[in-house]
Design a protein around this nucleic acid. Sequence first.
DNA 1: ATGAAAGCGCTAACAT
DNA 2: ATGTTAGCGCTTTCAT
Lengths: 341, 341
Amino acid sequence: MIGLEEVAKLARVSPATASRALHRPELVALRTRERVEQAALELGYRPNVLARSLRTRGSRTLGLIVTDILNPFHATLAKGVQDAAEAQGYTVLMFNSDEQPDKERRALETLQGHLPQGLIVVPTSQTGDNLRIVPGLPVVELDRTSGLPDAHSVMVDNVSGAREAVAHLTGLGHRRIGMIVGRQDVSTARERLQGYREALAAAGLPYLESLVLPGNHREADGRLASMQLLSQRERPTALFVGNNEMTVGAVLAARDLGLELPRDLSIVGFDDSRWAQTMSPALTVVAQPTYELGMVACQWLLSVIQGNPWPENVRLPTVLIHRSSTAPPQPTRSPAQAASP
Amino acid sequence: MIGLEEVAKLARVSPATASRALHRPELVALRTRERVEQAALELGYRPNVLARSLRTRGSRTLGLIVTDILNPFHATLAKGVQDAAEAQGYTVLMFNSDEQPDKERRALETLQGHLPQGLIVVPTSQTGDNLRIVPGLPVVELDRTSGLPDAHSVMVDNVSGAREAVAHLTGLGHRRIGMIVGRQDVSTARERLQGYREALAAAGLPYLESLVLPGNHREADGRLASMQLLSQRERPTALFVGNNEMTVGAVLAARDLGLELPRDLSIVGFDDSRWAQTMSPALTVVAQPTYELGMVACQWLLSVIQGNPWPENVRLPTVLIHRSSTAPPQPTRSPAQAASP
DNA sequence: ATGAAAGCGCTAACAT
DNA sequence: ATGTTAGCGCTTTCAT
């Protein structure tokens, strides 16, 4: 490997000067600087960031922990983070917690050894505890919040997004609206449920526990919960589903039950995706600015690392995209359609 | 930060002994070792991997460059790599080339400073050149090959996968089979085209250039190419599409043209996905062992890093999954159906 | 404006 | 079996 010493020798200066020439140009005479730059170029010099980090205790490295890299939503978040980091010359160490607090802990332990300068994390239920592994590290929580009182977070406005989605359904005339909701120890799930309740209240509809089924954010859970919900004697005419994966499950459940969208059932999902766009019928969804979410979180973190104060927590807006999976409920329903299996 | 020195002090040994106790246990008396371990635990000691790497010139770090992290195929590859690396205590630095040789080059430059011990790369067209940035680094090419004569690669058997797909179509009785093929500077595209030709030949069908349209691996290209292909006077009765993204485009094009699958058109895609599974009709595809691909590549690289010789290049098998988008061609076709727009 | 020297935290000779 | 010493490549005082 080409080291600074070789460069210095070729440029006939000391290693110290060579170092300064390359990243403190103002401290060095123009002519010497040019010589050093020339030498570096000639030798193909690449600074050893490990040595630099060790010395400066600043690694130009950020940690990123997402809960499921296979979920396109998270992949998009990650891309936003990476692009923002790269633009400022930072390297991202990405880990995957798979929603498991234990894997998150291990990721943090590994990460710590790399002396990251900041962390962006999509929290699990134990993030509050786990973060004690990296005391003093600037942390931005992404998409959800761990609930730590001094947490800094970049999220979408889940309450309003959910409210808008459900208001759309009530506006169409639906009065029995089911919800498949995520785990209540995840902040997004709590907030989306709240939006659902608010929209019902605004429409003068009662909140019925029997219409709200929990799922564990995965397709299979969404499918199971939807099956149950749609097999009730008096099944809902519309469904609001709390995340992208479970929405897939809901659509499949409807299909299994022979329900045609939107004639027999309206569905609104949370989070847009190509899948939602290309399904037939195309899905009405609450779209999130996913890429921006990641990018903003990263820019925000970098700004703090560079010494600026923490800004206020950020809430990006969602947009309801009206496609073809929602329609007014059937004016009349034959008993056959309400049959239980 | 807690350093080895603090641990050593608490355990009343020298830093050197503390270091040995923690990762060369056999060189240290059992009792001292226990004292050191205890001390490390008590203080929450985490080794500074930067310092370690600097000293040992071995960073326990691998580079991974994929061409599109938003493509679920690549996300799955990445997960396979990460899981395999983590299992052996290696950290993965992941980058995204977006199919741009230039971004690939920058990724390699950044990576080099981190002293990676190996690299896994999904090559772009310039990877051969770019790899000169990291001379001597063990490299595994994943999914595709750069064409370098001494490249080591982990791929699927594209020729046979494509051949099987097209043979399936000829077996159903199709005689006009179109193909949407990727860029010919990407090895997978070349190989899949070859499989297509072989299957046609085996069925005694001529290879018609007019039935083979190129696309740039993206949905939009697939859609455009399919539109053209399906608007021909005598349009194909079946389509073989060279990758997952373009298959989406092909399905949308068919939909736009009012063609019903599989009655008016059979489609086989390359690479399975949830989208392919949940589309209606569910898509017949050539499935790849994507996760295994990433995992094998990583295990392979690690084995080489640990001093073993390079194994033979690996070709994992594909599996044709027969779903509902393929059927025998219509026995008769009314002129109306073959109309051009 | 430049150089000499020290040291980031760790590990590997080399001693004992 | 353990301690002493040196040095990985870089940056940063402190001199000059």
